[in-house]
């Protein structure tokens, strides 16, 4: 069992947990993800790694309640644990392998959407700690759904907030704020967008228009996460790639987002049934 040492609700539907997984914590790098299984009958659920502490032997995960499986995760309490926590999976972010000298000439702009803000944190932190200029945009529907504001502020040069309803920060979408910031001549050289697929699609379109290279992190369907099942296949630059081993990060310009979004919804009917089934099971208790 992988014990939960800490749990907090960041919003009524988003939960942060620190979980014991010593081997994983030692091996993790920015950009990678992991898979958890809440209990014996649960799914293998891919989640981004929000932080890792090799000394403590823990990893931090952030989950949003969207279906039966994420509900199972959120129902767990400190002292309880996961049947499995496995990883790190996927490739580390490209910048981890770049020469520092080269990297320090760059100015990164991260565009974080919703629960996708959590995996931006270790990336911004890594770059910030290595002396690279980093700005971060956090976007959400409304101010109550904003997460990681304080944490992010401590690991970037400038934090920009935006909400769809204007309840905090810039009033509008992340794409509009990005355009505005670029228009102000901030001198960004590389964008990284992590969030819902639709947000990454439109951020990529905006980046294309602005001539700004953009990396996206694809949260596709997965089973094993090691290249075995191919559920995560995405078309990148006309080629089929496996997000679990070739990604999760890809050049946004090359990704077929429409296909990726369709594929992500492949089990929606079955998932809805599972949730209903799950709810009536819970209802019986």
């Amino acid at each position: 069992m992988y014990q939960i040492v800490k749990k907090e609700m960041l919003t009524p539907t988003i939960c942060r947990m620190e979980v014991e997984a010593p081997r994983l914590a030692k091996a993790a790098a920015p950009g990678q993800f992991l898979i958890v299984i809440p209990e014996e009958k649960g799914e293998r659920i891919p989640l981004t790694i929000s932080d890792y502490d090799a000394d403590k032997g823990t990893v931090t995960i952030v989950t949003q309640k969207i279906g039966a499986s994420s509900e199972e995760i959120i129902a767990l309490e400190p002292g309880q644990g996961f049947l499995s926590v496995v990883g790190p999976l996927g490739q580390a972010s490209e910048f981890v392998k770049m020469p520092l000298e080269e990297l320090r000439k760059q100015h990164y702009i991260f565009i974080a959407g919703g629960v996708g803000t959590a995996p931006v944190y270790p990336q911004a932190k890594w770059l910030h700690e290595h002396g690279v200029k980093v700005d971060v945009i956090i976007g959400s529907k409304t101010k109550d759904l904003l997460i990681y504001k304080k944490e992010m502020a401590s690991v970037c040069d400038a934090l920009h907030i935006c909400t769809d309803d204007g309840s905090e920060g810039f009033h509008g979408m992340v794409t509009a704020l990005l355009e505005k910031l670029v228009g102000e001549g901030r001198g960004y050289t590389q964008a990284v967008a992590i969030g819902p697929m639709i947000m990454m699609k439109f951020t990529t379109l905006t980046c294309k228009k602005l001539g700004l290279p953009v990396v996206v992190s694809l949260n596709t369907l997965m089973v094993d996460g090691t290249g075995m099942c191919g559920a995560c296949r995405v078309t990148v630059g006309g080629q089929t790639r496996f997000a679990c081993v070739d990604g999760p990060e890809f050049d946004g310009y090359e990704v077929d987002f429409d296909e990726a979004m369709r594929r992500q919804g492949q089990y929606r009917t079955e998932e809805k049934e599972a949730l209903e089934h799950h709810e009536c099971k819970i209802g019986r208790v």
Binding site: V223, C229, A231
Partner: peptide
Amino acid sequence: NLCGVFSANEFLTR
């Protein structure tokens, strides 16, 4: 890559 095309590995692993 249409929805509904699976590898036997995925289908059997599930």
